[in-house]
Design a protein around this nucleic acid. Structure first.
Lengths: 340, 340
DNA sequence: TTGAAAGCGCTAACAA
DNA sequence: TTGTTAGCGCTTTCAA
């Protein structure tokens, strides 16, 4: 099959290239007759515009990119997918870039900005730390999804998220209400200002409100967001901590890994140990036992993020949106066993 | 932050743009001194080439695209990821395009071919039917991964896969060896020439070899590749078929959905019903019960596919590679219960 | 070893 | 309403 250029189409239709360009871009200043003739040739040849040439001209501010950090996260890819379908209706084209959890999303952003001239970004699964300053330097509109950027001081960054701290507090309350007193937390970084730190804070809020002490150095495990990571860590941990009766984790994936580890150690969930997740992924509903989790409003997060970015591309000031979460009860939490 | 062009770099380094281009593309005909000076300016400015301009020149045959059909498939995204890391070492740049299971991968291919001038394709999770003829018309080198294209008659398509038919036969043998006689199959399309049809054939091979009849219209369910799909179908099915003691499914995801449905119906896995998966995803190892499955050699599939495509881009004839699989035993299969 | 200059396919002034 | 033409940033001959 031949590849046709706009010139070929112009020649075949007996018009100038600019006319073809106008037709293809839906400009109003073309006669119906000419438009019809051009479109006829276009469909006949199966002509498609060369995107490289197009965007070379356009240069920046033309399209937006969604950067998803955490290829393996069911939750994040669900949100990204939803964003894409919200973006269908907008005039700004969106593209998604999946990167590894170990990669630096700000490098990726800079790269996309320079290489593809993306005019705006949605960051999914990103963190806020000294490296996010890169965004300030670039001055390009960004939306942090699932992270709160209201205290970042970045002039060009909006955010959409749930109140991670309150949600985790509610989850810890739930465990304590079930009588658990020896609880451990499986999550990520507990310093700084990312979701994990906030969730950690929320758990602390609950524990302190219940007058309970918690030795972070002792009981808090740092884990990657992988089934294996959580599994291995949990297995090692529980070999030495048989008195713990509940585990609060910071993702459904981690919860699954922890549950599997407990079962392999001969412990029952939730009869011996209760486990909670976070995110409300599909998997949390289908796991055995189903996982008590915080359900994040995927569709709303996606819609808000896209809208916010599009508004900013048209000059709006950054905004910080907080959405509602739901504590979804599953089979993985039960009352504290009186003895083991 | 400024965006620099190659001209800016050239000016700052006191050389011509062509020299900068040569340095950036690692050409040998540049003096060490000049190369160093240019690279200094490049790092200093944080200069990145404009991809659009680059590929505008290059036109086709320059880079390759991986089209993954089935966004939600853990297995396919694992393979795609592996392909990407194999491709790191090659001189051909690769890009990945994820599309929905409902989308047409050949439309996507045509689009990428025309719009981005991709010079070769790897198709993951694709089918072989009348629409794959589009590939013949385009004449662009393609590799089908996880599907056997040896009988497609396409002159420009290689393939890398396991023997799906033999694998499924082995799996069915495994169930029958465990004494099961009332088995049902949960999978996709059983006609045509795609993986599901082949797996279906393999199951039939086993049943026939054991002298067992199987009424396809009665017992075979068509399902989407989603947890919910499998769950709903299994729930409906088992409400009317309490005598079935084993389910052979065509993906780990489906197996999980089926298991959850059985448990919700008050049946135990594997004591009452045995269930098998396919693919050997990470999840199959961490599910409760862990899932007996066919483990596909992800890394080898990825490596072979990339190599094959690169060879074809240099003019090699298509080849058809079959790799080894492993039957991975889990907890989801047990002996046939004598009574229920 | 380096530089000057001609496009790649498209868009968008500007002219007609 | 349409056509002519000058670039967008880069690669790549061809000359020097």
């Amino acid at each position: 099959m031949e590849i046709y250029t706009i010139r070929d189409v112009a020649r075949k239709a007996g018009v100038a290239v600019s006319t073809v360009s106008r037709v293809l871009n839906g400009r109003p200043d073309v006669s119906e007759e000419t438009r019809r003739r051009v479109m006829e040739v276009v469909t006949e040849c199966g002509y498609v515009q060369n995107g490289n040439a197009r965007f070379l001209k356009h240069a920046r501010t033309d399209f937006a990119a969604i950067i998803v950090r955490g290829r393996r996260s069911m939750f994040l890819s669900d949100v990204a997918e939803q964003m894409l379908s919200c973006a269908q209706g907008m005039k700004t084209p969106f593209l998604v870039k999946y990167i590894d959890e170990a990669d630096d999303e700000f490098d990726t952003l800079r790269q996309l900005y320079a290489e593809k001239r993306a005019g705006g970004f949605i960051l999914l699964g990103s963190r806020l730390d000294e490296r996010s300053e890169a965004i300030r330097a670039l001055g390009v509109p960004c939306v942090f999804a699932t992270v709160d950027a209201s205290r970042s001081g970045l002039g060009n960054a909006s955010s959409v998220c749930i109140d991670d701290r309150a949600a985790t507090r509610a989850m810890m309350d739930h465990l304590l209400d079930n009588g658990h007193r020896r609880v451990t937390i499986f999550g990520g970084n507990r310093y700084g200002d990312d979701v994990f730190a906030r969730r950690y804070q929320g758990a602390m809020d609950s524990l302190h409100a219940h007058g309970m002490a918690f030795d972070p150095e002792e009981s808090y495990r740092c884990l990657r967001f992988s089934l294996e990571g959580a599994y291995n860590e949990a297995k090692r941990y529980f070999e030495g901590h048989r008195d713990v009766t509940a585990v609060l984790t910071m993702s459904d994936t981690m919860a699954a890994g922890v549950i599997r580890a407990l079962i392999d150690l001969g412990l029952r969930v939730p009869q011996d140990v209760s486990v909670t997740g976070f995110d409300g992924t599909q998997m949390s509903r289908f796991y055995v036992p189903s996982i008590t989790t915080i359900s994040q409003p995927v569709e709303a997060i996606a819609r808000e993020s896209v809208t916010l970015l599009c508004d900013m591309l048209e000059g709006a000031q950054p905004r910080y949106v907080t959405l509602d979460y739901t504590l979804l009860e599953g089979e993985s939490v039960g009352p504290c066993p009186t003895e083991r």
